[in-house]
Design a protein around this nucleic acid. Structure first.
Length: 582
RNA sequence: GCGCCCGUAGUUCAGCUGGAUAGAACGCCGGCCUACGAAGCCGGAGGUCGGGAGUUCGAAUCUCUCCGGGCGCGCCA
């Protein structure tokens, strides 16, 4: 619909541009857009005002000339010049009725397009370290990433989703250590559990499982351990590293691997289940360890070295990321010979590109924003355009219980999990609520409010509209009447103001999906669905649907069927159910 | 100190690449069920879009500056 209007304006501009003094108009974009106020018609163009200055003309006169040149079309009811020089177009009721017919024949496809022409995109999101259950902050990432992937698909992108599993590194060693220490407690060994180990109850559960499967003999010499824990001469983090070393030497590589493996298997499995229940499934879970196993980190570093982008300083190897806009160079190989986390990420993102994606979108926590420049530098170092990687920052979720802010520390194990949240407020409310705000805004999530006043949650407002339509259509079905084919004749009776308003709203859907996709903005879908539901409820209260006149009844039933379809399509993008009863 | 994000109604937030009288929800006030689902609808009150300057025919939107808040600035991950 928007495209048709745009084309009409372009034709008008070309026609007016035949006058040599106005030739520039031929190359101008009319920039037609929806009006914000129905009194200004349906679409508007500001081209006359933009051109007026360039051409030294009066905007309203120019607008007149352009308006007069707009070709005759059935879908345009009238053209007005308003304000300083807007060209306003009001569409005919026929145009909207035709659009309803399109909704009803396209069904689930309505609103989707091929505008991105199969552009290959990889969306990476959540990627939380598997050191414990997902918390409410991760839930926001999951809801955002999954919805964004759906929206991108709806505009013709070929999208894959991926979770990067940080299954290597110190945090994982600390986790394995934490499990082992819980295991030792089970074996009856007494000591004070370090405060900077993972405190969560899940460590005990995993220890329990290992004990029941492998017995309680994997202790090494407890005296060494007790001595180390009691030793107060080291600062806590150094002591933690000493404990990890101690565990590895007491247990041997195989013994330590039992705890490491059990911990990651259990926790990653839990994360996978949790996300699946939340309606978030990935095309791929990418293991950080596999980078090492496949030698990808060394390969990446060699390639950078070959391009003369590395240098040695203070015993470490540095990557000249400042060549590509970063504010300081970054270490890739430490003085002790170990590669950094950044080195893994370089290899990972290089590999992503090699898999043939045109665009990489990463959803990061806002605390990682300092990481963007160096990652883009890494890709640039391999000759990729810097905008191959697009990072979307997701701001923190601040959790409240009533007016009390809930403090959360991962290692302390004191936090509300995504699972807790889902059980309390439900998947639908959680998914909808999470993406109702722009990702770069903080989200205050009050659990008490979400529980006690769930009726106030906008998701119910939208779902209610859908259920109400289902109910009305059941009523029609009970009466034995059948929906007619959505042709022009069947839709012809739709002419009441509320009907036109509703059709107008429905016909915006495809444009909203496109804009949401362009802006990576799922909240625009939320906003739209609320507007559509509101328009439907207004119509519902103003006009009776199942009336005696079969022509009017059928037309209205087609209209609400179209409404229902668009509500369902939009909710599907957000991963929220469209219920027939509530 | 430097960098990124943010500041819109009492509260929580929308505002699509600069458009016309800045919107919604919750809360508040007043109406609407002998009609398809009142989890709904209709009406009302409520604003110096943090302050100031600039660009523009036009600024919540772009630029600068100041104020206030969040986050980051490791050979951690």
């Amino acid at each position: 619909m928007h495209a048709t209007i745009q084309k009409l304006l372009e034709q008008a501009l070309s026609a007016v541009a035949k006058d040599a003094s106005l030739a520039t108009l031929a190359s101008m974009d009319p920039q037609t857009e929806r009006t914000r106020d129905a009194r200004h018609g349906d679409f508007t163009s500001n081209v006359a005002m933009r051109a007026a200055k360039l051409l030294g003309q009066k905007p309203r006169e120019l607008a007149q000339r352009i308006a007069a040149a707009i070709p005759e079309a059935d879908i345009v009811h009238k053209v007005d010049i308003a304000g300083p020089g807007f060209i306003n177009l009001t569409l005919s009721a026929t145009a909207y009725r035709e659009e309803m017919a399109r909704v009803l024949s396209a069904r689930q496809q309505y609103g989707s397009s091929e505008s991105a022409q199969g552009r290959r995109v990889l969306v990476e999101f959540v990627s939380a370290n598997p050191t414990g259950p997902l918390h409410v902050g991760h839930g926001r990432h999951a809801a955002f990433g999954a919805s964004l992937a759906n929206i991108l698909r709806a505009t013709g992108h070929h999208v894959d989703t991926e979770y990067y599993v940080n299954d290597a590194g110190r945090q994982m060693d600390i986790l394995a250590l934490s499990v082992w220490l819980r295991y030792l407690e089970l074996a009856g060994i007494e000591f004070e559990f370090p405060h900077n180990c993972y405190q969560g109850a899940y460590c005990k559960t995993i220890a329990q499982t290992i004990a029941s499967q492998s017995g309680t003999a994997l202790t090494g010499d407890p005296a060494v351990l007790s001595q180390l824990i009691a030793d107060e001469s080291h600062e806590p983090e150094a002591k933690l590293d000493a404990l990890i070393g101690c565990a590895k030497s007491l247990l041997g590589p195989e013994g330590f691997a039992i705890f490491f493996g059990a911990a990651i298997e259990e926790i990653l499995g839990d994360i996978r289940d949790d996300l699946h229940e939340f309606g978030v499934d990935y095309d791929r879970w990418y293991s950080e360890r596999s980078l090492t196993e496949n030698n990808l980190i060394d390969n990446a570093i060699s390639k950078l070295r070959a391009s003369d982008l590395l240098y040695e300083k203070d015993g470490a190897t540095w990557f000249r990321t400042t060549d590509f806009g970063d504010d300081k160079d970054r270490v890739v190989i430490r003085e002790n010979g170990a590669t950094t986390y950044f080195a893994s990420d370089i290899a990972y993102h290089k590999e992503k590109c090699e898999r043939g994606y045109d665009l990489l979108i990463n959803a990061f926590g806002s605390d990682h924003h300092g990481y963007i420049a160096r990652l883009q530098a890494a890709l640039a170092g391999f000759g990729q355009p810097i905008d191959t990687l697009e990072v979307r920052l997701v701001q923190f979720v601040v959790l409240f219980r009533g007016s009390e802010k809930v403090q959360m520390t991962t290692r302390g194990g004191n936090y509300v999990t995504l699972r807790d949240l889902r059980e309390e407020v439900g998947n639908d409310a959680a998914r909808f609520f999470y993406v109702s705000r722009s990702n770069d805004q903080h989200l205050d999530f009050d659990l008490e409010l979400a529980k006690s006043a769930s009726n106030d949650n906008p998701v119910y407002y939208v779902q209610y509209a859908h259920a109400r339509i289902s109910s009305t259509l059941r009523k029609l079905d009970d009466s034995g009447a059948k929906l007619p084919l959505p042709n022009a004749a069947a839709l012809a009776p739709l002419c009441e103001n509320e009907e036109l308003q509703l059709m107008r709203q429905i016909s915006r859907y495809g444009e909203v999906v496109q804009t949401a996709s362009d802006n990576r903005a799922p909240q625009m879908i939320v906003q739209y669905l609320r507007d559509l539901a509101a328009e439907f409820h207004s119509f519902y209260n103003a006009q009776r649907i199942i009336v005696d006149d079969p022509q009017v009844r059928d037309a209205r039933c087609l209209l609400i069927t179209a409404t229902q379809q668009v509500l369902a399509n939009g909710l599907a993008l957000l991963g929220v159910a469209a219920p027939d009863t509530m």
